[in-house]
Design a protein around this nucleic acid. Structure first.
Lengths: 245, 245
DNA sequence: CAGTGGTCTAGACCACGTC
DNA sequence: ACGTGGTCTAGACCACTGG
């Protein structure tokens, strides 16, 4: 077996895992664009000295993890859209099921601040980039979001021109910062609206609200985002798949 | 390629998929117990006339789907416990995190009834087995559950001696009815307690409650259970993983 | 048509459990 | 020691995409 030389790669691991890590790193570095095919299995096989089957296993792993998408007869490509769509599942009642209408988004502020305790513990950093944001549809505000980003992963996000920041953050994270969000953990709970939140959502102070706390992890397994989303409990609906998709 | 003869198996499918379906069916029929190893890869290869690699792919698929568990040097076994544990995630705040304390369970009634519209549509059957049940810990009732089971899959469940029905239903489904629950979809929303519900939960009428509607699917992909669980919103917390585990 | 990924084979050697 | 699953090889043929 030939080892896959690269810094930070544990050569005691099986070859296909080393190759997986190597490819994940190259993806994170932005080596391939959204519509550029990765090197084919044969080429990677020749480059690495591994057999095609082993290369296949490494690439398949990245497909299973949601990073790549295979197109028979064409090649293997980066994949972002589907995962992002799945992150808006809490709008499912508001939108016609299955149609991927992207909710509107208005960013109120982006600032480096002292991180709240959960975010600080997660990131291992005292400060974080705080994004304050409203989400809704064309008619009204549905949720308010407080997003904290790991400062060392998204340095400069707070000073990016507003015109570069669209309604979807995760594609931007990949394109500008080489950070691919591969998974997240959501926690749904129930609370009542404080005055500021109530005002933003257009509901009474003390009215019931749903709270979603999300911790998102990059492809290398580190937590890079912690967000708290709040919306009126009355229309709220959260869908979750448990077990194999 | 040699086809894997069996009723209900589409022979146009790739061999590894046919073998997967065949094995899933045999698992559903209860052919192997919880601590009995399945036939080894070599044996299955000889039996089916397929190469070991192809057999491997079929078995790996069932592992990925959560049906099987591989133990190197020993064999491949059925797997139930982990998945069942994961189905009690909504108790995560009440219980010491990570410890699999099984909540208490008290079944109030089991009856064949006219199924509510969502269950009837899901099952394609007008009647269903209705299970009315309370869940909690040693001190108090935490949730009430209304469970509807597909009658044709669980015929006789309503007349099973109570002593045979433990706190966990899914292991029972597998052992008595050969039904393996492989995945589910949860929908979380918030409402207020009607009088009966409030009385059961020991909260005020009109107090906020969390509602979890779950549709559970068997290994062959058919919906076999629809349940609605209700608990006080004040302590409620629901955790969900999105993206690859 | 050439190149891609999808399936499949028939071996090899290894790490690990069980007996 | 033997059998299990885990990794890996070096091919084969197929279905599909694209120019």
């Amino acid at each position: 077996m030939k080892s896959v030389d690269a810094p930070g790669i544990d050569t005691r691991l099986p070859a296909y895992l080393q190759l997986r890590d190597r490819l994940a790193a190259r993806i994170g570095n932005g080596e391939w664009g959204l519509e550029t095919a990765l090197p084919s299995e044969n080429i990677l096989s020749a480059e690495t000295g591994l057999s095609v089957g082993t290369v296949r296993k490494a690439m398949q792993m990245l497909v299973d993890e949601g990073l790549l998408e295979r197109r028979r007869g064409s090649g293997t490509y980066l994949r972002t859209p589907a995962f992002n769509a799945s992150l808006f599942r809490f709008f499912s009642v508001q939108m016609p099921e299955g149609q991927g209408t992207i909710p509107t988004s208005r960013i109120l502020s982006r600032r480096v601040e002292k991180a709240p305790a959960p975010a600080a513990a997660l990131f291992g950093e005292a400060d974080a980039i705080h994004v304050d944001r409203l989400r809704g549809d064309s008619e009204r505000v549905l949720m308010t979001e407080d997003i904290w980003l790991r400062q060392s992963s998204f340095r400069g996000f707070d000073t990016l021109p507003a015109s570069n920041v669209g309604p979807l953050l995760y594609p931007l994270f990949l394109e500008r910062f080489g950070v691919f969000i591969s998974r997240a953990i959501d926690e749904v709970s129930f609370s009542t609206a404080e005055a500021v939140i109530a005002g933003r959502l257009g509901i009474d102070e003390g009215a019931p609200i749903a709270v979603i706390e999300r911790t998102a992890y990059s492809a290398d397994g580190r937590p890079v985002e912690w967000r708290v989303a709040r919306g009126s409990a009355s229309w709220f609906r959260y869908r979750s798949h448990v077990g194999p998709a």
